[in-house]
Amino acid sequence: MMKGTCSRMFAALVDLAEGRESAEAAAHVAQCASCAGVLRDLERGVRSLRAGFYDAPADVTAAAKSIFPLPVRVAVRLLGTTLAGAGARGETAVQAAYEFEGGRARILYQPEEEGWSVMARVEGEGWRAFPAELDEQGRVEFRVQALGEARLRLVREGVEVVIDPPSEEADASR
């Protein structure tokens, strides 16, 4: 957090980060460790932006995608949901159970101060989970900003299972 002189100095720090001279800012940075850190961050940011970003051409991306065999997506059946108490923001946690070919999953979508915590337990052998990894007990946990982003993807030997959060319950909990 920048205060007083430091906050007034920010524009000059940007000048320095861009390679322009600012005697006043240079003198301040020499005596202020906090602003010296901000300057290094700005220099890295400006350097990264100036280095440029390049999107791969569509045909190059398409050719690379063809390397990966697409997994077959199997159907998911929602066995049921239960409301599991109010969270920090007054929103309601939702517990849901799902069944699919080769496994089952129980997932708790829990509201937090900022965003949602998703905790799942997956039954069945050999699954890999995204966006986080399953532990040895088949559990996975991750956080998202909004409940709508709480997609859990499971992959095993060319089979893909996509579990989206139960939207009706999500709406009801708001």
């Binding site: 390049y54 999107d55 791969a56 991306t61 990966f68």
Partner: peptide, 13 residues
């Protein structure tokens, strides 16, 4: 791949 295409292509360029 869509998530990482820019990263990989930018390294090469």
């Amino acid at each position: 791949m869509d998530r990482f295409q820019n990263l990989v292509y930018s390294v090469a360029r």
